[in-house]
């Protein structure tokens, strides 16, 4: 499944990184601790978090994350958006809580 399919099926906002909407999604990871993501996320994962600063993009890029989804209506910072565009890794958003979104995403991917 591609990022764009998930955007459509879950009604997500696309804040940035449109170039990467065709990236393939193979799984998901939920965490707001950056070293946890560094240590355990897999390439191709969607990363669900409420962190919005640009270091999220550094990690997403280093780990080859397919897209970042910011939950609970939080918005990414301007420098996060800039780096997302530069890396071509989409930053998506939802009003849903991480719990609700993770549940829907899990059903979609499995």
């Amino acid at each position: 499944m591609k990022v764009t399919d998930i955007v459509e099926k879950l009604g997500l906002n696309v804040f940035s990184g449109h170039e990467g909407l065709g990236r393939e999604v193979t799984g998901g990871y939920v965490s707001d601790l950056l070293s946890d993501v560094m240590g355990h996320a897999e390439s191709g994962d969607l990363w669900l978090t409420i962190q919005t600063h640009r270091n999220v993009m550094a990690i997403a890029s280093l780990k080859d994350i397919s897209a970042v989804i910011i939950t609970s209506g939080e918005k990414p910072g301007d420098d996060t958006i800039a780096q997302s565009n530069q890396e071509g890794i989409p930053v998506l958003g939802t009003e849903l809580s991480t719990f609700e979104l993770a549940g829907r995403l899990y059903s979609l991917l499995n």
Binding site: L34, D36, M38, G39, T49, N55
Partner: peptide, 15 residues
Amino acid sequence: EMGFGAGMGLPNISA
């Protein structure tokens, strides 16, 4: 608050 400093960095390196 940024999500760093959870005491996982050095164990990650070690692993």
